[in-house]
Each structure stands twice: as structure tokens, then as C-alpha cells.
């Protein structure tokens, strides 16, 4: 198994009136054809870390790493042209809210066909056929009809399926899903996650799932990386989540209300300044 992604000592900084502010302080991991979850609270640097793999950060950001490769390609040294050959084609990004991520004035089918044509040679007719096939793959029951709908005519779950279909069009090796189900209802969330799981397994893709939801990620991924304030607190097998050692991970688990085990009072996370290095 070759590594899709290798990251060593990633640092990301943004400029501020008082000089650069580092928001990711030395994150390292290796990803193969597996499901890695990155969990953390808002501002923990989880999205910035994942987006750095595609160099999809605001221009003002400074990225450095002793090593950052995608399938052996040096991402930091790559030109924008080389990056465009990776983004979308070899690594897809699924965002949180289909309402904002889809083009509101293009039909679902046209958007998927466009994504397909950017990365494949083929006629408009072939692209349209591919789009309908992809909609069927994300288990949309009537793909021909849905292809003709505009984003505002889709429910949240359908919109997310359309976005996934678009990301699958170029046959990527890696999917990065940034809170793909946070905008969805629980029943739809379960369906979308099963769909992603199935596609990842069938196509042998790597997956990075970014979420604030620790139980969800551990249910779904092979490995979980817990981030806090731009650092990795702990990395563990998802199955061993309940045996997590780090006080931050424990704290996050303990402050969740539970349906099965009632608590009189929720414990509150006590933040240790030592976690910030």
C-alpha cells in the first residue's frame, strides 16, 4: 500500500496587524487507502490542515512543512498548474453545505457533466450519460429527473449526493470530506455516511473525514486524530476511542449528554494551557 498523503511538521500562519499568527503548529500524519478522521472544536485547525494537502488556503496563508506529498508529488513545490491536475481529479473535496457549494443557476446534471468533462475527453452527450450514471451511483432513485433539477429544488440530502457525484466524476484516489453531514438530519446523515463508506471501499480510495462529532467519526473511520489549538493531541484506532488517554479527548467525551446513560449534570471541559504547547 503506497501512501496517498505524507505530512511532516505542517505549519500554517496567517498575517495579522501584530505579525504572522501560526494556527497549525507542526502536524504530521501518513494516509494510505484508509479512513482517517480529524476531530476538533472550531478553530482547532482541522480544516486548514486538510486543505493544506490541496494547497487550498487563502493566498495570505504561509504554509511550511518538512515534507508534504500527495502520491509522492511535493505539494509545496508544485506549480498551480500541477495542483490543478490533483485538485478534483485525484483528490476531491466535499463541503458542508450543498446550498452554498453548488452553483445555483446550473442544473445538477449540468454541474456533474461539467466536472466530468474537465477531467475526461468526451462529447456533451457522453458527459450527460456519465452524469446520470454517477447520480445512480450515489443512489438517487430517478437520476434522469434529478439531473434536470436546480439546487434549490433539491433537499439537503439530495444536494449532498449531487456534490458527492460531482467529486466522484474524475475517479479520485482521495476524498476529503469537511463536515459532510453537519447540515443534514440524522436519518439522512446515516445514509450519506453509508454511501461514502461504500464508495470508498469499492473504489479503494483514501478518505479524510473532518468533523466536530467524536462519536460519529469513531463509528465511521479506521483512525482518529484529535486536534486542539493547531496541535495533534492524540491519534488512536477508532475502535479504541473509549480507551482514549488524553485528557482533552476524555473531556470531549465526558461533556456529551447521553441518551442511554443519564447524567445529573454535564461535566465541563477544563482546558489545560499545557495543551497549547
Amino acid at each position: 500500500m503506497s501512501a496517498h498523503v505524507e505530512m511532516r511538521d505542517l505549519r500554517v500562519a496567517f498575517p495579522s496587524p501584530r505579525g504572522p499568527v501560526e494556527v497549525v503548529h507542526g502536524v504530521s500524519f501518513t494516509l494510505g487507502a484508509e479512513k482517517l478522521g480529524i476531530v476538533g472544536e472550531s478553530g482547532s485547525g482541522k480544516s486548514v490542515t486538510a486543505r493544506a494537502i490541496l494547497k487550498l488556503l487563502p493566498r495570505a496563508a504561509t504554509i511550511s512543512a518538512t515534507r508534504l506529498t500527495f502520491d509522492g508529488i511535493d505539494v509545496l513545490g508544485a506549480s498551480e498548474r500541477q495542483m490543478r491536475a490533483i485538485r478534483g481529479k485525484r483528490a476531491g473535496l466535499i463541503l458542508q453545505d450543498p446550498k452554498y457549494a453548488l452553483n445555483p443557476v446550473m442544473t445538477a446534471g449540468a454541474q456533474i457533466a461539467e466536472a466530468w468533462r474537465v477531467h475526461h475527453r468526451g462529447s456533451a452527450r457522453q458527459a450527460r450519460a456519465a452524469a446520470i450514471d454517477l447520480l445512480a451511483q450515489v443512489r438517487i432513485r430517478d437520476p434522469g429527473r434529478v439531473a434536470a433539477l436546480y439546487p434549490h429544488e433539491l433537499s439537503g440530502g439530495m444536494g449532498q449526493r449531487v456534490m458527492i457525484a460531482m467529486m466522484l466524476a474524475p475517479d479520485p484516489e482521495l476524498l476529503i470530506a469537511d463536515e459532510p453531514t453537519s447540515a443534514l438530519d440524522a436519518t439522512v446523515q446515516a445514509e450519506i455516511l453509508r454511501l461514502i463508506e461504500d464508495l470508498v471501499a469499492r473504489r479503494g480510495m483514501g478518505l479524510i473525514l473532518i468533523s466536530h462529532d467524536l462519536p460519529l467519526v469513531s463509528h465511521f473511520c479506521d483512525r482518529v486524530m484529535v486536534m486542539y489549538a493547531g496541535r495533534v493531541m492524540e491519534e488512536l484506532r477508532a475502535a479504541n476511542l473509549s480507551a482514549a488517554q488524553h485528557p482533552y479527548t476524555r473531556g470531549l467525551l465526558d461533556c456529551l449528554p447521553s441518551l442511554i446513560h443519564p447524567k445529573d449534570r454535564l461535566s465541563v471541559l477544563k482546558r489545560d494551557p499545557a495543551w497549547e504547547g
Partner: peptide, 11 residues
């Protein structure tokens, strides 16, 4: 309820 407990029990 099943969707909620499924995730809880996983952890």
C-alpha cells in the same frame, strides 16, 4: 432513537 444510540454505543 436507534440513530442516536447507534453512535453512542460505538464510542
Amino acid at each position: 432513537r436507534a440513530l442516536s444510540t447507534e453512535l453512542e454505543e460505538a464510542g
